[in-house]
Amino acid sequence: MSSLLRNIIRLILFILVQVFVLNKIPPLHQYITPYIYYLFILWLPFSMGRSSLLIVSFITGLCLDFFTKSPGLHAAACVAIGYLRPFFINLLMPQQGAEFNYREPSATSLGFTQYVTYVSVLTVVHHTFLFTIQAFQFGNIFYLVLKTLGSTVISLLLVTVIEIIFIRKQKFLTNT
């Protein structure tokens, strides 16, 4: 399956799961809103240029926004992690050239600790951005911090479950 086709299917699945499963479950607690769709952006291939990464992130966010009737809200958060992603990959890359040996970020390509850091940092960035924009109208810092923390923990739990259930086969690419 080509990389493009796989990513399109992935985007559709992530958006559908977010809209029809996670957004439908009755509120667990006032501090918890689970998110998973942004994992699509974290899984995009290394080979993408930085501008195209931004465009894809923007479209991802906008797709979800059409369902939640809040145009621009998730798009803004997605563009933020799409912009920060290359910096973190450069920082956390274990040895020079992993981006040529593997197709996309995962526990095998980045190394377990690095991958956990990568996912958690970008999750925190996404949630902070999202809830800050949502909270512009009323300034309760305490509520904002707790909501970000609670949702981050639950989202990371979901990411772990997804990583365990769907093991992505990572081929070691060589020149030969």
């Binding site: 621009g72 798009a75 933020a80 924009i133």
Partner: peptide, 9 residues
Amino acid sequence: LEIISLTLL
């Protein structure tokens, strides 16, 4: 892109 999304919102 950020400005576009915030304006939309």
